[in-house]
């Protein structure tokens, strides 16, 4: 990221505001996700309700930040790293909003899953562990964004694959339980949906890291393998 100042201080201020708002949104979304997982672990329905209610704020932030991006483009005609910053921030808000949706989904499903009696300690523990890992990725991606760290972004993309593997293992055990216990398929599907939501949060954190690479390097790595990303971003 280009950190030197523009001749126009107001332009600097506009771009700084964009950056800080997307970090603010990241903070809100991270908290939403943490509360949703806590609601599931603790069975606290008030937390779950709070997450569902707060999702509106996440949606508002997405719209507001996108609007800010459009205004910067219209007024400043940003070029090069500034243009990539604005486009990247706009894409980041989309991924953050999706993470907010996943938090809401987990919160909504938590009550039914808790009351079913199928949510055993092992599953709750595994789910909490993968969710913590996914949340760590989200935090790392935001930190890498704040610091403009390419290596941090690549580490997030690498780690997101590990979360995916953990979630696959949990899913396999749920499928096995469905076979053994056909009467509980509905709630087991809800549990699987929760695990899938955690997996998607990790994916979105990986997307945030990809947007960061685009902002810093101008390289679009959205559909590249990890090997390609490392080769193309670290060499130049």
């Amino acid at each position: 990221m280009n950190t030197s100042e523009h001749i126009s201080k107001q332009y600097d201020a506009d771009l700084a505001a964009l950056r800080s708002r997307v970090v603010e949104m990241g903070g809100v979304v991270e908290e939403q996700f943490r509360f949703a997982v806590d609601a599931l672990s603790s069975g606290r329905s008030d937390l779950a309700e709070q997450v569902v209610a707060n999702d509106r704020r996440v949606n508002e932030l997405e719209v507001e930040i996108d609007d800010d991006c459009a205004h910067v483009i219209a007024k400043r005609q940003p070029a090069a790293s500034d243009l990539r910053m604005v486009l990247g921030v706009s894409k980041m808000t989309t991924d953050l909003e999706r993470i907010g949706d996943k938090a809401r989904k987990i919160a909504r499903l938590s009550a039914a899953v808790r009351s079913s009696g199928e949510a055993d300690a092992r599953w709750l523990e595994d789910t909490h562990r993968t969710a913590d890992a996914a949340r760590g990725l989200l935090r790392d991606a935001l930190n890498a964004f704040v610091r403009g760290e390419l290596e941090g972004a690549i580490a997030v993309i690498r780690a997101a694959q590990g979360v995916g593997q953990q979630v696959s293992a949990i899913s396999r055990s749920l499928v096995k339980r469905m076979g053994e216990n056909p009467g509980q398929v509905a709630v087991l599907l809800d549990m699987m949906a929760i695990n899938k939501a955690v997996d998607r949060v990790a994916d979105h954190a990986g997307n945030l890291a990809e947007h960061l690479i685009y902002i810093i390097k101008g390289t679009d790595v959205r559909h590249a393998t990890l090997d390609q990303i490392e080769r193309e971003t670290l060499q130049r």
Binding site: N2, H6, Y11, P78, A79, A80, S81, D82, G218
Partner: peptide, 19 residues
């Protein structure tokens, strides 16, 4: 040049950082 300039001086000029 306008999207991914190689040179920092070029980047600073086209992004309005030159002064």
């Amino acid at each position: 040049v306008f999207f991914r300039p190689k040179n920092k001086q070029t980047e600073d000029y086209i992004t309005g950082r030159f002064g």
